[in-house]
Each structure stands twice: as structure tokens, then as C-alpha cells.
Design a protein around this nucleic acid. Structure first.
Length: 637
RNA sequence: GCCAGUGUAGCUCAAGCGGUAGAGCAUCCGCCUUGUAAGCGGAGGGUUGCCCGUUCGAGUCGGGCCACUGGCUCCA
């Protein structure tokens, strides 16, 4: 009789052929799924000798995937009841919920979602047992053919097994790997969220299906919390906050989609970012360069962009009979600077940095506020070094990147190492050296990372860094990429100790990615309430009555003289309540209230954006407090 | 690009079966002289995304275009 060990340390002997459900019964646990040797398994799976199992109850987080997968089936069942003739595609559990792709006989709209939800609730209340049945390949094929399930048939043809699993609940039966909960009655807390188009198998050449997104949780509280989180993310959407805070605008008709106008306040934030960025780069041994927005066709011919990247580039313009292209990347220009004279090994490493504005064609459907645009400024740099310097340079640049991101208030990072793909240029030894340098650097930083085997670009391995924002969403910002292609194409060389020409290594890197995208992420991370050093307006001085206007102006003047971005709000006719509300909505960190008492005493009553009222304080003290907050880059006021 | 939805004043939103566009905020002008998230009154502001059609008459119905939103292999 097989013996298995439970998560609580117990060892159980089970009958030959017993399922985990039987084990759970024997152990007295209300299990809905099983985590067997660390893998989520169906409760109906057979227990085998020596396996370690954690029997999962409905509320175990590990069971969520099964719960959502079952929710997806309930969705499909409801859709089948309401829209006969609908074909099923696939319906997995995903990070935040689940979806199911359908081919409806006629289009449905969002307004149909409540009806579908109601039918789902009915299926839940029917508490249908979910059974697993195994069919032979031939039986499975017959069944799916009979039901006209063309998509499922395609999936079936790719399953290697001869024993095909189906799950059945009531009248509904679906080809599925599982795992699933024991019954539909367990999926009590769910919600349908969105309707979207999705290509069959994600392939743009194939049919467009209708995808219904939803989410499900083990408890009503967890579901409510998730919906609140979605609401908060919506509230923080940079496309909403941008116009509200007068930071930027986009004018599709008048100017063009995906092109950003930075308003004075947004521009001020950008200026602070850029200034800080440049200072740090000078300290880090980078040299700042500026390069043009366009270049002749032959440049892009040499770089290979015209052969491999043309669909991402804007059409050429004709200047005196020569073709010029808007730059999609800065590298060829930096290389030209490098090549403007003979380089010695003594000069290396050379690090060229540029806030370089590039233009790339993006399909209209993928444009998204500041996050996906057609014209953007990369915080770009190219490091050109000798092979013996690679290790050190990578270590430095990674450390540099993380330091910079921390200054902007991000503290959670994860890294992805992408290695050599099947099709590549350059020598495998170079690839290995570069890949190892990247690996050692992330390990030295103590970053968690995963390896994306074979997912590097054809020209070199790379490491990407994701940050996590205040809503626990991941964004890919930093990328550090080797290039074994361009040095070759442009014949970059340096003269070595031996007096001979050698090929340098080149590394592309962007830390923030692009200023537009980074700004969008910052807006959402802070919900528009920037830390003092980034706030476009750092302090407002609010007079209570007209008599205090001169005093308010004097105070604002003192703040400005101390390097603080301060305004006196002296337009008449507004109550203090009004002005405070106005300042709160604009998320201005410091409000200095000046009434008769303060004007007499040379003080101001300090209110923080947090709502905290600190009462009257000498203006000098307020100034040093604000200056300290600014220079610390801290979000604390 | 594709699927579904949406497009009315600077912003948020109204206008039962087609009958000739309205409110709050914002702006401007007054009054009020204000103590920690909206004081009061008045005025101006719209080619209802664009084009074509149906109709005596279109924000509303039909067609085409444009733009935006949610998405478009987290693999039975």
C-alpha cells in the first residue's frame, strides 16, 4: 500500500489506486485540490508512493488557480446555456482571475455580461458535481466533432496522450487538463470584468474570438478588495491625472497620436528628472552627447535598420535628392562619435550618454497614454569597452541603475536574463563571456532573476529589470544589452597594447527606459502626489484675507529665494477653504496659511498635503524643513 | 491592423417613441473679506468627432471614415 506524507508531518498509508480526495477524507481535511511535490494537482489524481502532499482547502492561496479555472468553466457553461451554438476555444486561470475565449454565432456586448453572471450564479447554486472522465482519442474526436467544436479539435490534435481528460458538470462537458474543484457550488465569489477581442492562439492571421475576463476569490472580502484595487488603479491612471494636474496632453487630430505635449508642470518634473539624471551620469563617468533627429539612408543601411527594422521606422524624407530617416535609435550616432578618431585601449571604457528623442511607428491600436507612444526620449547610453573590462562595467551599470531607481522611490526589483537564441551573430565565446558577466552582476546585487533561455536578441544577451510600483504592478524599465552586431557592421576598433586593431564590446543600456513612459509610471506610482523634489509646485502661500496679500507675497518670495518652487495665491474673492481644497486637488505638498496673526508674528501656519495641520511656525523653519525634504528625495514631507 | 464598446461646452454628465441641445464644475464680471477640502449672484461658451444618406425635420435612424477605451498565446 502506497505511503504519502502530508504537509502537517503525518504519514498516511493509502489504498492502492486511491485519489487525493480519498487521502483528504482519511486525513479529515476538506480539500479541493492538492499540491503534490510542489505542483498543483487535481484532487481526483491518484496518490503514489512517497509523494509529499499539501491538501488544499478552498481558502488556501495555492487553490486559487483551480478555483478560477472552475470559474472559467462555469462561465463557459453559462454562455452555452444563453447562447446556443457558441464554440469554445480556451479558458485558463490567469494572474488576477480567468478568461474564456468564445466564438459567438453573433456578437455580444458588455451589456450581456450581467445576464451571463446571473446564469453563472444559477450554476453555482445548482452545486453541480464536477467529474473528470477519460476518453480515448477516437471517442474524444467523435464527441468534439459531434458538438462542432473546431477549436477544441485543433487543441486535441496537439495533445500527445491517448487518454484524454474531460471535465463534466451537469450538461456541460469540456476538454480540459484541469485541475478543477469538486463542485460548482464552491465558486461563490466571482465577477465578470471585461469583454475583449483576442485572436485564436494569439495569431493575427487567424480568427478573432470574443474573450470574457473575470475574476474569482475564495471569499467575498478578497473579491471586494481586488475590485477596490482595480478602482484605485483606475483612479491613479496617468491619463486621468495628466490633464487633471495639467502635466501633459495628447492631441490626436491636431498633432498626432502617440505624440506628447509636456505642459509647464510636467516639463518641470521632467527637468528635475533630467537634471538629476545628468548629474548622476557625470559622477558615474559618462560623457553627455547630443545627436541629430535624422540621418541619411546609408547610415541606417550600414546599421541594418533598413533591412531589419524598417516597419518600425517612419517613411523617408527627401532632402536635396537624398533620403533621410527619423531616428528610431541613437546608437549609430554614438558609434559615429566613437569612430571620429582612432581610439586607444587606454581611452576605454568610453561611456556616451544621451537623452535622445527617437520616433518609432507603433500600430494605432497599441498606443496608450504616455506608456506606449510614437515619439519618446530614451535615457540612452552606450558603453564601449575592452573584453577585460566587461565584467566590471556590467557590475557598475547594474548598480548604477538600481541606485537611480531607488532615488525615484522604487525598492522592489526583479531581473530577467535573456540568453543566446538559435539565430545569432558574433562568436559563441563572446556570448558566453557576456552572459556570465550579466549573471554574476545580478547575483552580486542579490536580485532575484529568471533565465529566459534563448530569448536574447540576435545581436546579444541582455538583462531586463522590472520594478514594482505602489500598486504591486511590475513595469520593465532598465535594460542592459550586449551588441555583437553593430561594432562589426560599423567596423569599430581600438588600438591595443600590441599596436594592433581590436574589436571593442558595446553595451546599450537605458535605465528609466523613456522619459515619457517613466513619467507615466511615476504618476501612477505616486498617484500624482510626487515627493517634494519632483513636485512641480512645492509650496503655496495662502492669504486668509486681502490684507495679507503683501505678506503672502513676501513669504513666497523668501521660499523662492531659498530655491523652493513656491507660489502666493493672491487672487481675491476666494475663501481659505476654497484655496485649501484647490491646493489639495493639485497635490501640492506644502500649504502655508497666512492670516493676521501670522503676518504679525512673521510665521505661517503649515499644512501638509497629507491633511496634517502643523500650526504656525517661523518661516525660516518651514524653509529648512522643505529644503531637507527636497534634498533627501524622500516621499516624507 | 483586428474584435467589442464609446465619442454632446475646457472637465463630468443630461436630453422617453426622431421635433431644432441642458446642468454642475472650470472661465469671465460683480458682491462677500473669509482660519484648514467648494461663500453668493450674474454672464459668456456647443458645426452634438468628421462625411454621406433616410426624413418635412437627425445628438437620436442607416452607411463610411477618424479618434479613444478594454484587449489580442500568463497555452486543453
Amino acid at each position: 500500500m502506497p505511503k504519502v506524507s502530508l504537509a502537517d508531518g503525518r504519514e498516511l498509508e493509502v489504498a492502492e489506486g486511491a485519489a487525493w480526495a480519498d487521502v483528504a477524507r482519511a486525513a479529515g481535511i476538506q480539500a479541493v485540490a492538492a499540491l503534490v511535490d510542489g505542483e498543483l494537482r487535481d484532487i481526483r489524481d491518484q496518490a503514489e508512493e512517497g509523494q509529499k502532499v499539501k491538501l488544499l482547502t478552498l481558502t488556501d492561496p495555492e487553490a486559487l488557480e483551480a478555483l478560477r479555472h472552475t470559474a472559467a468553466h462555469i462561465l463557459a457553461q453559462a454562455v452555452r446555456r444563453l447562447f446556443p451554438g457558441t464554440k469554445l476555444a480556451i479558458g485558463p486561470a490567469i494572474a488576477d482571475g480567468f478568461y474564456y475565449d468564445f466564438d459567438f454565432p453573433s456578437p455580444i456586448t458588455r451589456d450581456d455580461l450581467p445576464r451571463i453572471e446571473e446564469e453563472m450564479a444559477r450554476i453555482v447554486s445548482e452545486d453541480l458535481p464536477v467529474e473528470r472522465v477519460f476518453l480515448s482519442r477516437a471517442e474524444a474526436e467523435d464527441l468534439l466533432k459531434e458538438e462542432g467544436e473546431a477549436y477544441k479539435l485543433e487543441l486535441l490534435s496537439e495533445i500527445p496522450d491517448e487518454r484524454i481528460s474531460f471535465y463534466r458538470q451537469g450538461e456541460f462537458m469540456d476538454l480540459c487538463r484541469g485541475p478543477h474543484l469538486p463542485s460548482t457550488g464552491l465558486v461563490k465569489h466571482f465577477k465578470l470584468l471585461d469583454l475583449a477581442g483576442a485572436y485564436w492562439r494569439g495569431d493575427a492571421t487567424r480568427v478573432m474570438l470574443t474573450r470574457i475576463y473575470g475574476t474569482a476569490f475564495a471569499s467575498e472580502e478578497a473579491l471586494t478588495e481586488h475590485l477596490k484595487w482595480r478602482e484605485e488603479a483606475r483612479r491613479r491612471d496617468h491619463r486621468r491625472l495628466g490633464p487633471d494636474l495639467d502635466l501633459f496632453s495628447i492631441h490626436n487630430e491636431a498633432i498626432g497620436a502617440g505624440l506628447i505635449l509636456w505642459h509647464p508642470k510636467g516639463a518641470r518634473v521632467r527637468h528635475e528628472i533630467e537634471t538629476f539624471w545628468k548629474e548622476r551620469h557625470f559622477e558615474g563617468g559618462y560623457q553627455l552627447v547630443y545627436t541629430p533627429h535624422i540621418g541619411r539612408a546609408r547610415l541606417w543601411q550600414t546599421s541594418g535598420h533598413l533591412d531589419f527594422y524598417r516597419e518600425g521606422m517612419y517613411s523617408p524624407m527627401d532632402i536635396e535628392g537624398q533620403e533621410f530617416f527619423l531616428k528610431p535609435m541613437n546608437c549609430p550616432f554614438h558609434i559615429a562619435i566613437y569612430k571620429s578618431k582612432t581610439r586607444s585601449y587606454r581611452e576605454l571604457p568610453i561611456r556616451y550618454a544621451e537623452l535622445g528623442t527617437v520616433y518609432r511607428y507603433e500600430r494605432s491600436g497599441v498606443l496608450h497614454g504616455l506608456l506606449r507612444v510614437r515619439g519618446f526620449t530614451q535615457d540612452d547610453a552606450h558603453i564601449i569597452c575592452r573584453p577585460d573590462q566587461v565584467e566590471e562595467e556590467i557590475r557598475k551599470v547594474l548598480n548604477f541603475a538600481l541606485d537611480m531607481l531607488r532615488e525615484f522611490g522604487f525598492s522592489e526589483f526583479s531581473a530577467h536574463l535573456s540568453t543566446r537564441p538559435a539565430k545569432f551573430v558574433g562568436a559563441p565565446e563572446d556570448w558566453d563571456r557576456a552572459t556570465e558577466a550579466l549573471r554574476r552582476a545580478v547575483e552580486a546585487e542579490g536580485l532575484g532573476y529568471d533565465v529566459k533561455e534563448g530569448e536574447g536578441a540576435f545581436y546579444g544577451p541582455k538583462i531586463d529589470i522590472d520594478i514594482e510600483d505602489s500598486l504591486r504592478r511590475a513595469w520593465q524599465l532598465t535594460t542592459i544589452q550586449f551588441d555583437f552586431n553593430l561594432p562589426e557592421r560599423f567596423d569599430m576598433t581600438y588600438v591595443g597594447e600590441d599596436g594592433r586593431k581590436h574589436r571593442p564590446y558595446m553595451i546599450h543600456r537605458a535605465l528609466l527606459g523613456s522619459l515619457e513612459r517613466f513619467f507615466g509610471i511615476l504618476i501612477e506610482h505616486y498617484g500624482g502626489a510626487f515627493p517634494a523634489w519632483l513636485s512641480p509646485v512645492q509650496a503655496v502661500v495662502l492669504p486668509i484675507a486681502e490684507e495679507q496679500i503683501p505678506y503672502a507675497e513676501e513669504v513666497a518670495g523668501k521660499l523662492r529665494a531659498a530655491g523652493i518652487r513656491a507660489e502666493a495665491w493672491t487672487r481675491g474673492g476666494k475663501t481659505l477653504r476654497y484655496l485649501i481644497r484647490e491646493a489639495q486637488l493639485q497635490k501640492i505638498p506644502y500649504m502655508l496659511v497666512c492670516g493676521a496673526r501670522e503676518a504679525g508674528a512673521g510665521t505661517a501656519a503649515l499644512r501638509l498635503r497629507t491633511g496634517q495641520d502643523l500650526g504656525p511656525q517661523p518661516v525660516e523653519e518651514i524653509i529648512s524643513r522643505i529644503r531637507a525634504a527636497i534634498s533627501s528625495h524622500s516621499p516624507e514631507l
